[in-house]
Design a protein around this nucleic acid. Sequence first.
DNA 1: CGCTTATATTGACAATCGTCAATGCAATAG
DNA 2: CTATTGCATTGACGATTGTCAATATAAGCG
Lengths: 116, 116
Amino acid sequence: MSLTELLPITDLNDCCAPITREPMKADGAEKLARSLKALADPARLRLLSIVASHEDAEACVCDLTEPLGLSQPTVSHHLKVLVSAGYLNREKRGTWAYYSLAPHALETVSGLLGDL
Amino acid sequence: MSLTELLPITDLNDCCAPITREPMKADGAEKLARSLKALADPARLRLLSIVASHEDAEACVCDLTEPLGLSQPTVSHHLKVLVSAGYLNREKRGTWAYYSLAPHALETVSGLLGDL
DNA sequence: CGCTTATATTGACAATCGTCAATGCAATAG
DNA sequence: CTATTGCATTGACGATTGTCAATATAAGCG
């Protein structure tokens, strides 16, 4: 996945007309596929799920490395993919980086799948 | 994606308890990731969308090759991925193979994302 | 200033993926 | 039977991915 080309989830809203039964255009299909690819990894799904179940729905990298059983650079990499795709927000406070769920990102992509 | 290990979508229903705010287990994350990976490709999203917008929601390979601009073997490959993941059903009638949407597959995965 | 701690980046590697040309396999037509 | 048509499979190829070790950056502490 090329990180530099990821679009925020909000751009997905115009990937396809919501009600019509027309086939998806190539452009919309690529946008949606990019958003799904960012989600389609067990480590990233667990990261989202751990963040979601934390108090205040935020967590720092140190909270995430051990439960996943992956190295710290690998966790940082997955977090970057999720931020680039618009699923997570990143806030740096002091030495720590706190990740939190982006408000409607998951609902948006989930809704688009339902309309497919 | 290893085609032999794909599970039917129905198996996703026990990938994680629906309401709880517990982090996903590794096993459930892998199942859901496999289902999402099958979806996370522009050609496959367009295939689903074309099938969905057809009369009777079914189409043969000959209907699908030209609108995608991909070779026939490539289209057959993508269709196989979608069938293995449980998104499409395949019925052979005479020389033709007709693909149709599996009834609740997309809703299931879409619902799981919403609960994440 | 140097030392420690938390996170990010780089570079490498094996594994997987998407694609096509060539070929195989069934089912129908003649 | 042979020829044709629709689809599947195989094998190859470059491209992308997930992972880690090593290194870099940056913030706080002494």
